[in-house]
Design a protein around this nucleic acid. Sequence first.
RNA 1: GGAGGCGUCGCCUAGUCUGGUCUAUGGCGCCCGCCUGCUAAGCGGGUUUGGGGCUUAAAACCCCAUCGAGGGUUCAAAUCCCUCCGCCUCCGCCA
Length: 434
Amino acid sequence: MIDIKFLRDNPDLVRASQRARGADESLVDQVLAADEKRRASLSEFESLRAEQKSVSKSVGAIMGKLGAAKKQGGDVTAIQAEADEARAKATELAAEVKRREAAADDEGAEFTGLLKKLDNIVLDGVPAGGEDDYVVLEHIGEPTTFDFEPLDHLALGEKLGAIDMERGAKVGGARFYFLTGVGARLELALLNLAMNQAVEQGFIPMITPTLVRPEIMDGTGYLDAHEDVYHLPADDLYLTGTSEVALAGYHQGEIIDISGGPKRYAGWSSCYRREAGSHGKDTRGIIRVHQFNKVEMFVYCDPADAQAEHQRLLDWEKEMLAKVELPYRVIDTAAGDLGGSAARKYDSEAWVPTQGRYRELTSTSNCTTYQARRLGIRYRTPEGRTEPVATLNGTLATTRWLVAILENHQQADGSVKVPAALQPFLGTDVLKPL
RNA sequence: GGAGGCGUCGCCUAGUCUGGUCUAUGGCGCCCGCCUGCUAAGCGGGUUUGGGGCUUAAAACCCCAUCGAGGGUUCAAAUCCCUCCGCCUCCGCCA
């Protein structure tokens, strides 16, 4: 949710942001109109409410007098009449207050509904346009070349006894898989490497709930894309597609202390995605699956620090990619391809030899104060005011990384070299075919 | 799954039975000031959060809401009723 005060003062900036995203510009004026209406009817209701309260209070005072007079055994008819009169007036007032309150509530809900539809304001420098309008920021390493015909990750995985798609489908259906033997160990190695790095950098390691309540899912902005989210109707819970959701919900409704610097969490969780919009895409292997594991960085910080923190997250992702020795590029995602909560997003994409292209391995978003405003997460400024924090997230490792690791480090005999950083976790420098 | 207890402004706590001087009590902590060789003690004041108004803006000020959440009854709800959430105790079941 964006700041309504900012919107009132800078409608043109918000319009420009909507335009860059290819989103509805007229929403801005709808929100502003709804805001006017809601404030007018709120004022009306509140002043009438104040009147009702004072009349009602006077009834209380009269009741007190009445009680005292009764106790003394005096004549109470005059006081009784006064009480009846005041009460009658209050009754009338109460009915009108109820009507105005309902109107104010309706207009408030209308306003909030519209405001929530507005996506985050994209930052200066974010390329305008859609999915293909990204800007490549840098290339690290050269695409891997082979003097033999490389196998794809699934063929390699099957030879190594690392991936079993067939039984995955038997047990869970399409887009499910088993990681077996060295496959399971390789994933654990990767995730542990990521977790270790995060801890070294001062992150608090977290293992998070993967089922969350509707408020949390909505607060992070993912319910807007609800067709891609698993829902358990019997319990009204949602399966999270990333631990970002639980980590953002962790401080929901709190005023947190960031006076000592950003709060950084590293979440380890299984992630669940319906992949509803991607039928037929990436159906081979484990590139796009319904369930995978991920280590995710999540940060709460001073909004003034958010852009610098975003760079740091990107640097830490690059550090992980260097450790597993992959060639990749970094892109600055275009406005239209940002999630609704994100103001800027950098993806790192590793080279996948058998596809001859780069595929996303990490994604780091600066959500500025958008999520925090929805979730009610604030900090105290040095002046003592409460303001929404900025939230940011970024990937440190996922199951998908196995695809790039297997393919880029394969050798002619079907074995796969293990990057040095992973060797201590696996106890070997090469994975050999069965 | 069943039975019972509980949820109050950072923490603890009074108030709930019997609706109205509750504008929510007191303590601790914290902040400001006074006093004081220094410290401690003492004294005085302040200390939930959100929204609306006023204001160029902020502060101050006024108003509305806020006693786990949401609804209801009533002129009036922390207090009565309903639903939900969470915590605790016991029983049952279970990996």
